[in-house]
Structure formats: structure tokens, C-alpha cells
């Protein structure tokens, strides 16, 4: 029962997020290019304000010791620890971001807008994820 509500809530939050990504212009090639060429600060401002709002919200959740609404559990604030992989991953990701003017979230939202450019990007992300998974498996098998 909880699982079903959680799935529905995740889907609903995703719908709102997709709507907002389009609203701020994150799914527009021109807005993305303008950000990286320092011609327009729409998206950097969106990111900065969203981060600051998030900091305030997370601080409030922690202060109120709020538990999650659906499952009534303690809210997990899982922080990704630092590793060298973060740096290598950033280089790949950054080049991909510039080549496609999208990130894994916006590419999918573009599909809903009828932007077919999202199709090869989404296919590529799936392929890259798959290759990463297979390489990890090989490494694991080698060390065993």
C-alpha cells in the first residue's frame, strides 16, 4: 500500500519538476548556450536561488525533526562522499552537458515537449549508464 502511494507521489513530484524545468527554460538549447557563454544569467540564477531555498528548507526539516509524510520514517540526508571518481565523472559529464545542452533530467522533459533532439540524448545516457555498469562488473570479477 505504502509503495503504491510512494510511486504515485514520486510520479507527481516528477510531473511538477518537469513542468518547472520547462518553465525556467532549462530545456531550451538557447537558454543553456546563453548560460555557458555568459550572455544570460537565467539558469545560473535559477540554480543559485533553488540551492539557497533548499538549504533553508533542509535546515527547517532538521530543526523540526520532521519525519517523512508517506512512510513516517526519519528523513535520510544521504551525502555523497568525496572521491577521485567525482572529478573524473565531472569531466565526462561536463563535456556531455555542453555537447547536448541537456542533463539527464531535462533530456527526458524535452521528450514531453515534442523535442526529438531528446531521443538520441536519452538513448546515449542509457548506453553510457549501461557501459558504466558493465565495466564495474568486470572490475569486480577481476578482483575476486
Amino acid at each position: 500500500m505504502h509503495m503504491k502511494i510512494e510511486k504515485g507521489a514520486s510520479l507527481g513530484l516528477g510531473v511538477v519538476f518537469g513542468f518547472l524545468l520547462v518553465s525556467v527554460g532549462a530545456t531550451s538549447f538557447d537558454t543553456q548556450a546563453a548560460m555557458f557563454l555568459f550572455k544570460d544569467f537565467q539558469l545560473p540564477i535559477v540554480l543559485a536561488v533553488a540551492m539557497m531555498t533548499g538549504v533553508v528548507g533542509v535546515w527547517m526539516i532538521k530543526r523540526m525533526k520532521a519525519s517523512s509524510i508517506i512512510v513516517q520514517q526519519q528523513i535520510e540526508f544521504m551525502k555523497i562522499p568525496f572521491s577521485k571518481n567525482l572529478i573524473m565523472g565531472s569531466i565526462f559529464f561536463g563535456i556531455g552537458w555542453a555537447l547536448t545542452a541537456s542533463c539527464p533530467g531535462t533530456a527526458v522533459a524535452m521528450l514531453g515537449e515534442g523535442k526529438l533532439v531528446g531521443v538520441p540524448v536519452v538513448a546515449g545516457i542509457l548506453a553510457g549508464t549501461w557501459v558504466y555498469g558493465l565495466m564495474g562488473k568486470k572490475k569486480q570479477a577481476g578482483s575476486e
Binding site: F92, A123, A127, Y132
Partner: peptide
Amino acid sequence: LFIGGTLLGFGARLAGGCTTGHALVGGAML
């Protein structure tokens, strides 16, 4: 676009997240 997507997918897994997970959510947790 496909090659760019591949780099996004591979890079995101290596880095443990994308713009959402790192900038928005990781940023919110400082």
C-alpha cells in the same frame, strides 16, 4: 547528441549523480 548523452550517463554514474542530485539536492544539504 548520442555521444554527448553517453558521456552524461557514464559521467553521472561515475560522479554518483547529475545536476539534480549534486547541485540542487547536494547543495541543499551543503
